[in-house]
Simulated assay, not measured.
Amino acid sequence: MTVGFTAAWTVTAAAADETGLFAVGAVLVFLGLAAGTASVSAAIWAVRRSRRPG
C-alpha cells in the first residue's frame, strides 16, 4: 500500500508541479506512510501477542 499510494501521489503531484519539489514530497510521503504502516503493524502484533492463550 505504501508504494502504491506514493506512486499515485507522485504522478498527481508531478503533473501539477513546476518547481520539481514534488520529488521531496514523494520521499516524505513514502517515509510517513512507511512509519505509519510500521506503527500499526507493531501495535496489532502486540495486541495479538498479549491475547494469545498460554
Rank of each mutant, 00 (worst) to 15 (best):
A23V: 13
P53A: 15
A34Q: 11
G25Y: 03
A35E: 06
A16D: 12
R49F: 11
T10H: 11
L31K: 10
D17Y: 02
T19I: 00
A35L: 07
A15D: 12
G4P: 00
G4L: 05
R48E: 14
M1C: 06
A38I: 02
V47F: 15
A43H: 05
R51N: 12
W45D: 14
A35G: 04
T2V: 14
F30I: 00
G32V: 08
M1T: 03
W9Y: 15
R48K: 14
G54L: 02
S41W: 04
R49E: 14
G54W: 00
A16E: 12
G4I: 00
S39P: 01
V40T: 06
T37G: 08
L31I: 08
V24Y: 13
R52I: 00
V29D: 07
A38N: 04
F30Q: 07
F22G: 12
V47Y: 14
E18K: 09
L33C: 14
G4E: 08
R52Y: 05
V29C: 12
F5G: 04
V24M: 11
G32W: 03
F22W: 15
V29L: 13
T12P: 01
A13Y: 04
G25W: 05
T19D: 15
A23F: 10
V11C: 12
T12V: 10
A42G: 05
A23Y: 07
R49L: 12
R49A: 14
F22L: 01
R51P: 00
D17A: 07
A14D: 10
R48W: 11
T12G: 10
G20E: 05
V27C: 13
V29W: 11
R49N: 15
R48Y: 12
A14Q: 09
V29H: 05
T6N: 11
V29I: 12
F5P: 00
W45N: 13
A15S: 10
S39Y: 06
V11R: 09
T6Q: 05
A7D: 05
S39I: 01
V11E: 13
A42D: 06
T2R: 01
A42L: 09
V24H: 08
V27G: 14
L21N: 09
P53L: 14
A42Q: 04
T12H: 15
R52D: 06
V40E: 13
V24D: 09
F22D: 10
